[in-house]
Amino acid sequence: MQIRLISFGFVLLVSWSCKPEADALRLLDELVVSTNYDTGADFGTYATYSIATDTIGFVSNAHPNDTIIVQSSQNTYPRVVLESVESNMDNLGYTRVEKDQNPDLRINVYVINDFNLFQQIVYPSYYYPSYYGYGYGYGSYYAYPYVNTYATNTGSLVVEILDLKNITPNNTVKVIWSAYMGDVYSTIDLIKQSKDAIDQAFVQSPYLGI
């Protein structure tokens, strides 16, 4: 009888003292915003930028043939995030121009989906080709150490600023600023949280601006 009582108490105690899950609502009600920049870049020397109007990039190992997300009546996400980026750039004093008007900066916006989760510090010692053709045919590279975060069945919204003013002789461009915002697949309110995250990305980057 006493053994049973102890056993019951043991099970009860284990049930109570087992590791509880953290409050998911608190964790998921805002995106993690990570920004990195080229400390050698002088953001005051740039005046104009270009950005897509209603299309953002899409990189997914689950859907390798889909490379863009297009604004539509069913999917208003592209325009929301693009307008949010544009609004922040305008507030900083930059002027948006068309891509054939020789802009100083190019802004890429894309979503990374369905990668394995890991974090890695990457040091700028290599070049890689532009992944979906928004770089005007240029390759691009990072000029500063940064942290990459990838996750399977999850996704990050990424905003990159490319330096078109200082294109290297072999047609590559520097990524002089980037923002990673995640996770966009577990959000409670995707549109609001994405807009808030983009605003926060610019707030925590006071070196941007003319």
């Binding site: 003292s17 590791k19 509880p20 953290a22 608190r26 805002e30 993690v32 920004t35 926060q200 925590q204």
Partner: peptide, 28 residues
Amino acid sequence: NWSYYQEYKPTETFQNPGGAITTDYFNE
């Protein structure tokens, strides 16, 4: 013995030499 500690930390921004990260989080 075993024990489990947890504490919620409200949103804050961590600056580093090459950027920043903003999030709320749990320490455990």
